[in-house]
Structures are given as C-alpha cells and as structure tokens.
C-alpha cells in the first residue's frame, strides 16, 4: 500500500529538489548545451561556491543567498579566465575531444583535493534563522531549507532565460555554436562571446553552490554526485534549451525523491545515471527533440 501522504510529500519535495537541480544544471546548459564545451568541472565549481558561502557565513554571518550573488562576479571572472586557457590550449588546436576533457577532469580533481587539504573531509553547513523552519500546507510540509533554494533557483533560471532570449549578447550566445560565420559577419567576435558565456555559466555555479549548502551539509567530494545529475538534465532537456532543462530538472528531482522515499536515499545517486542512459539509448535528442 502506497500512502497518499507519503507520495504527495515525496512529489512536492521532488519538485523543490528539481528546482534546485535547475540551478545546478543551468551553467552546464549554457556551457555544454550551447557552447559545446564539456566542462565536467562544473559541479566541482559548485562545491567551491558552497565553500565560499560556508566561509563567509561562518566568519561574518552573511546570508548564503547574498554570498552567492556577491560571489557570482568573481566566479564570472574565474570562468572567463578558464575559457581563455581552454581556448588557447585546446579549442584553437582542435584538441578538445581528448585533452580538453582531461583538462577539466584535472581542474575538477584539483578543486576537490585543494578543498580537502584546507578543510578536510568533514561535512560543513551554514547557519541562518529561517533554515530550520517548515511551511505547513495541509498534509504537505515545505521546509524553508528547500523552499528558499527552489525560489532562488527558479528566479535565476528565469533571469538567464530572459537574458538569452531578449538581449543581443544573449542571442549571440545562442547563435555561437550554430553559426559562427554569421556572427563574424555581424562584427561579433565568437571567441569573446564564448568567453562571456562561459563566465556566465560559471557565475551561476556560485549561486548554485550557496543553494546546495543551504539544503544540506557539504563535503568536497559531494560534487561528483552532481556530474551525472547535471549532464542527465542537460541531455534530457535537449542540450541548449533552458526551458527544456528546467522541465528535465523537475522530472529528475521527482523521480529521485520518490525513489529515495520508497527504496531508501542510498539509491538516489543511481537514478540520474539511469535517466541519462535511458535518454541516450531512447531519445538522444532529449525529451523535446524531434
């Protein structure tokens, strides 16, 4: 007998979780989906964002969301710099498929080990007044530690969506993978656009990291669990599409939450992989692809 309460709570929790996943996958939807750069270090950068929130929260008591927003410009610069190196060493010489991938793998590894060296493998968390409370609506409970990240993630996703659709630079970003030549004819330097877009993608990692550490305690190797999730969401959402990505994130969140509720949380990390493999096997163009 499946309890209706339990199922309803699992679905609601999954939707909240899925919203947060959208923030995790957002940067990758830009960088991998639109620029076609396989940045597997993205989740590690999200962990770096989480530790930034942890440090500023424990030292100065800053709200993690505020830290995420403040750190975003710094992450943007880091991302732009990272792209410069990537472009010069791999993209320009056509080495991106092997060496470029290994490069990001190395970056991911360095971030993780550096964090372990400085902070150890203990779980870290943030303190804020509202995080322990729950909003109760009938038999469904909405904990603030999920609700706030959900709201922030949705806001961020919508903002990026509007930015890409409505501004000149945003549209140039969407065009850069498909039609470099057209951009050059318009007098836009594709490399600068890619650098800007890459920076934007990494900037979202700062916010996603802050949300991650609000939801639960974080240790350096947690990032690895998000690699499968983030890529599964981007592929399921149809690569570059932000709206597709958002729906895919919600779907994955709900499936994971239901699996965790009825089979135990230790199985949740495997769900993303199953979704990823099924997508690749059945619908490689994503849910909404033709």
């Amino acid at each position: 007998m499946v309890s209706v309460d339990l199922l309803a709570n699992a679905i609601v929790a999954g939707l909240l979780l899925g919203g947060f996943y959208a923030a995790v996958a957002l940067g990758l939807a830009i960088v991998f989906g639109q620029l076609d750069i396989v940045n597997i270090a993205h989740p590690a950068l999200i962990i770096a964002g989480a530790y930034t929130a942890y440090i500023l929260n424990s030292r100065f008591g800053l709200d993690p969301v505020l830290v995420g927003v403040l750190a975003a410009p710094v992450f943007f610069l880091v991302g732009a710099g990272l792209y410069r190196v990537y472009y010069a060493a791999f993209e320009r010489t056509g080495q991106e498929s092997l060496s470029g991938l290994a490069f990001f793998f190395g970056i991911m590894f360095i971030i993780e080990v550096a964090l372990i060296l400085v902070y150890g493998v203990d779980y870290r968390l943030v303190q804020t007044g509202y995080l322990g409370e729950t909003l109760n609506l009938g038999f469904v409970g909405l904990p603030y530690r999920m609700l706030v990240p959900f709201a922030v993630a949705v806001t961020l996703t919508v903002a990026v969506y509007v930015y890409l659709a409505r501004t000149f630079t945003g549209r140039a970003i969407q065009a850069v993978a498909q039609d470099r030549l057209a951009l050059q004819l318009m007098g836009v330097d594709p490399i600068r656009i890619k650098q800007w877009a890459f920076g934007l993608g990494i900037a979202t990692a700062a916010v996603a990291g802050a949300l991650l550490i609000m939801i639960g305690p974080v240790e350096p190797s947690v990032g690895r669990q998000y690699i499968g999730r983030a890529f599964a969401i981007v592929v399921l959402g149809g690569m570059g599409s932000i709206s597709g990505m958002f729906v895919a994130a919600l779907i994955l969140g709900v499936i994971e939450s239901v699996v965790a509720t009825f089979y135990g949380p230790s199985w949740a990390p495997a769900v993303a992989f199953g979704v990823l493999l099924l997508t690749l096997a059945l619908r490689p163009a994503g849910l909404f692809g033709r």
């Binding site: 396989v38 597997i40 498929s97 991938l101 690699i227 890529f231 199985w267 992989f273 199953g274 490689p284």
Partner: peptide, 17 residues
C-alpha cells in the same frame, strides 16, 4: 564521443551506489 565520457563518469557513481 562525449556521451561516452560522461557515461563512464556516472557509471562509477552508479556501481558505487
């Protein structure tokens, strides 16, 4: 090819789970 790379990464997590 990149899907293979991503899948292997996720594979390790799944086997560990």
């Amino acid at each position: 090819g990149v899907y293979f790379a991503i899948a292997t990464l996720a594979l390790a997590i799944v086997l560990e789970t």
